[in-house]
Structure formats: structure tokens, C-alpha cells
């Protein structure tokens, strides 16, 4: 799906837990997520801390969308 959206000309960032799968399907901007059943959350945290964690991941995704890349790039910092 990521690749088809990219093909249509829209920059796209893939937030996903299993990065090797994202690499093999051909996503260009990849942000690693937390866990399979809760990629953008962590139920062991308080609501506030969980939202902060989620915001952190979305911020990375926005940074990825604003970064020029020349090939597949994993934004894990």
C-alpha cells in the first residue's frame, strides 16, 4: 500500500513494527513502532505517558516526511 501511494506521487511514511517487512515491500520512509498489537501505544504506561510516546513517534514520522531521502531510510533516532 505504501508503495502504491508513493507511486501516485504523494510522500508517505510507514509506521510499522516489523521493519524488515516494510523494507521488503519497498517503503522509502520508515519509522519503527512499539509492538504489533499497539504500534503507537504502550498499555503499561499511564494515559499521559502513552500519549507522549505516541506523539514522539508521530513527530518522527513528520520529520521523515520533511526529509529528502534517496533510498529506503529507517528513521529510528
Amino acid at each position: 500500500m505504501v508503495k502504491e501511494i508513493e507511486r501516485a506521487g504523494i510522500p508517505v511514511v510507514h509506521i510499522c513494527t516489523i521493519v524488515p517487512i516494510s523494507l521488503t515491500v519497498g517503503a522509502n520512509r520508515i519509522v519503527p513502532a512499539v509492538a504489533i498489537p499497539h504500534p503507537l501505544g504502550n498499555p503499561t504506561l499511564s494515559k499521559d505517558d502513552e500519549k507522549k510516546l505516541r506523539r514522539g513517534i508521530v513527530e518522527k514520522a513528520l520529520k521523515a516526511l520533511q526529509t529528502e531521502v534517496h533510498g529506503q531510510t529507517v528513521f529510528d533516532k
Binding site: 500500500m1 510522500p11 511514511v13 509506521i15
Partner: peptide, 10 residues
């Protein structure tokens, strides 16, 4: 007119 997409996968 969408300029960017965030796609999430589990």
C-alpha cells in the same frame, strides 16, 4: 489535495 500520508501497520 492531500500532501502527505502517514500509513500505520501492526
Amino acid at each position: 489535495g492531500v500532501q502527505a500520508v502517514i500509513l500505520t501497520s501492526t
